[in-house]
Design a protein around this nucleic acid. Sequence first.
DNA 1: AAAACAAGTTTCAAAATAAGACTAGGTTAT
DNA 2: ATAACCTAGTCTTATTTTGAAACTTGTTTT
Lengths: 151, 151
Amino acid sequence: MKRKNFSGAECPVARSLDVIGDWWSLLIIRDALDGINRFSAFQKNLGIARSMLTARLQDLVDHGVLETAPASDGTAYQEYVLTEMGRGLFPVIVALRQWGEDNLYQPDEQHSILVETQTGEPVTRLELRSRENQVLEWQDTKVRKLSPDEK
Amino acid sequence: MKRKNFSGAECPVARSLDVIGDWWSLLIIRDALDGINRFSAFQKNLGIARSMLTARLQDLVDHGVLETAPASDGTAYQEYVLTEMGRGLFPVIVALRQWGEDNLYQPDEQHSILVETQTGEPVTRLELRSRENQVLEWQDTKVRKLSPDEK
DNA sequence: AAAACAAGTTTCAAAATAAGACTAGGTTAT
DNA sequence: ATAACCTAGTCTTATTTTGAAACTTGTTTT
């Protein structure tokens, strides 16, 4: 009765969740995008149990989302840094952030915001656009299953 | 030793994950966006244990992502349909899908694709753009913590 | 040299998950 | 009308995952 895994799924959403769909992975990745890269920094910032963090970091390294590197401060320790693949999760984090901002705060409640480094301005909304540059909602799209030849 | 919860977090990503961050929620939402809305349809499509599905659907209803409605086919059963808030997760699902497509398939491997309903064309890439309409990468943004007045 | 820190591992208890049997209404076929 | 089947669950049990805290080993700081 191991937890189900979706690593062989036909649906890319399922495969993604197989890699980063558990309770802590996306928060680790969020922190990594914020520049956190040491074991103890993740642990302190997240309040995660050390044993959990060890397991999650190892999973992410195994899946190619993070990689280890010698510490940049010259000490003998190591760092966990995002790979190209890991940095590709930036839109996922932004989408989660914007949904949370929109739906999970009281009108008067404060939260951190994402800003453009250059200008300090809050970032714009992440949107899917059609080839004609219109914003696409979910009704405007559909999933096409495997191409005709394969079932 | 309850699982940690992030419902009071300052970070919107954490709050979002508190609602949809467990193992099945985003797959249920993916299916709901595909038009699935009956208990047994979710169960069959996902291969999830019935007891799990019961719990997850209830959580999502409690959080306002789904709501129940009388079955649209005239039977006495009910349906689970996305609320406005739930439909707002569309970009999250698209972002996960595109990341999976980019990183989790062999070059020759097949998978479902998301297309524009109107044209049948695959959708374009979901991108965060600056106010000058340039694509923003993670290096181009930063998180600004709570505004100056509150710690 | 001693104290403190970093990055874990180990142990144990509690919670989450999976699988399948069981159930009570609702629907369909005969 | 009733038997058979479907829908949407609940219940039970076994296993896995998670969380908390103590313990460890090597590294760095004082």
